[in-house]
């Protein structure tokens, strides 16, 4: 078992952060979600995963944050083989990955502030730093007036921004965003993409799964298309 994690993050370091080699995922009994997918992402890169609903985008992101285990193939994050990591090492790795879930995974009874603060709290960060960071993210995503409201009382668009803020809270090594603009209008989509851009410029590797063409059209970032579990 690999107990320690390789930890390195410097802006625009061109070594490979994510390595996916011939990964297949079959859900029981025989639903092929991904077939022989190979992909690599360098540190500080921003990648778009596109494709229609059911193409396997969400499954790929779940495999990257070890929410699911591949049926076959190898996945490495920053040199760590996800198949061989101990439970504790996985938790340590998850602390360095931010995930904006399509279904948000917010705690409805907790306030917006508490939800965004959670990833920093599990790392026992300085409460003052947590306050400042949450306030900063709320301002950037236009949610400053909502910080004390229970997350469950907000609209889906607002909840989507909260999950994005939570994913960005730790300025993660790797940020995975699953349909991050699905419930947003053009203005708030702009705010979210600005935040992603900023994180990326500061060294975070970002993988965005989307079928919203407007957010990747005309950009220089790499795009991969998934269709019926296969990467093109």
């Amino acid at each position: 078992m690999v107990e320690t994690l390789n930890e390195s993050l410097s802006p625009h370091d061109h070594s490979v952060l994510v390595e996916i080699v011939k990964v297949t995922k079959i859900y029981p009994p025989d639903v092929m979600a991904l077939r022989n997918v190979s992909l690599s992402a360098e540190k500080g890169e921003l990648i778009f995963l596109t494709g229609p609903s059911g193409a396997g985008k969400t499954t790929l992101l779940k495999l990257l944050c070890r929410q699911e285990i591949p049926t076959k193939g190898l996945i490495e994050i920053d040199g760590n083989d996800l198949n061989t990591l101990s439970d504790n090492a996985i938790q340590k790795l998850r602390q360095r990955i931010g995930v904006a879930y399509q279904d948000f995974k917010l705690l409805p009874r907790l306030s917006v502030f508490q939800n965004i603060a959670m990833p920093m709290e599990v790392q026992f960060k300085n409460p003052k730093d947590i306050r400042n960071r949450v306030t900063e993210l709320l301002a950037k995503l236009g949610l400053s007036d909502k910080q004390n409201k229970p997350a469950g009382k907000l609209s889906r668009g607002e909840q989507q921004r909260i999950t994005i803020a939570r994913a960005a809270a730790n300025s993660p090594l790797l940020l995975l965003a699953d349909e991050p603009t699905g419930n947003l209008d053009a203005v708030t989509t702009g705010l979210v993409m600005d935040l992603f851009q900023e994180l990326n410029e500061n060294g975070s590797t970002i993988i965005i799964a989307t079928h919203d063409e407007s957010i990747y059209r005309g950009t220089n970032h790499r795009k991969f298309e998934l269709q019926q579990g296969e990467l093109f």
């Binding site: 439970d87 504790n88 998850r94 602390q95 360095r96 917010l106 705690l107 959670m118 599990v122």
Partner: peptide
């Protein structure tokens, strides 16, 4: 349980 699941996804250790 939902909260614990989210905490695990966010990297909370067993001691946390």
């Amino acid at each position: 349980q939902d909260e614990l699941k989210v905490l695990r996804y966010l990297g909370a250790t067993n001691s946390y």
